[in-house]
Amino acid sequence: MSDASSNVLSPDIVHREMKQNGVTDVVWLPDSETNWLYLLMKADPDLRLVGVSREGHACSIAAGLSAGGRKPIILIQNTGMMESGDSIRGWLMGLDIPVVLMVGYRGYTRHGVNKDTAATYTERFINAFGLQYYLVESDADAPRISIAFKEADRTKRPVVILVADEFHGFNR
């Protein structure tokens, strides 16, 4: 947990992390954690946004982009990640795709008393797939994003970043 002065996750910092790690394409479906980030990404002429209507689609699109030499990131919510299970298995893990999934952690409460089953099952789901993941709550945690990119590249596997900052830094 970070100190009070940086107790939010700034979309600018997330955007900077994407750029530093060479992201070329953002395959995404909007969620409550990423609205303000969307505005930054949209204004960036070097980023291609590929919008999907169901999160599982993002996996095969990212796999194709990666096979073709691009560096995609997947930006979805935990609910959609769970919907995407077979695509994560088949298109990302099955093809050894080194991709970061930045996943909005809907329902996250830090103290573990969840009122939203989306949060209840999120980490269990990731663990079931044996994926590495990092929790990012504030700007102080942002370096974990680069760690995730490096790990994905090194292991040739998807790595998850859980964005636990709903209704704060990613929104105005």
């Binding site: 999907v52 095969s60 982009l65 096979a67 073709g68 077979d86 088949g90 298109w91 093809l95």
Partner: peptide
């Protein structure tokens, strides 16, 4: 790119990704 059947419903996305990349 004969990928077999990684996960049903994904071939179009994979094709789109390759097309956008190249």
């Amino acid at each position: 790119l004969p990928m077999g059947d990684p996960a049903m419903g994904g071939h179009a996305g994979f094709g789109l990704g390759v097309a956008l990349a190249q």
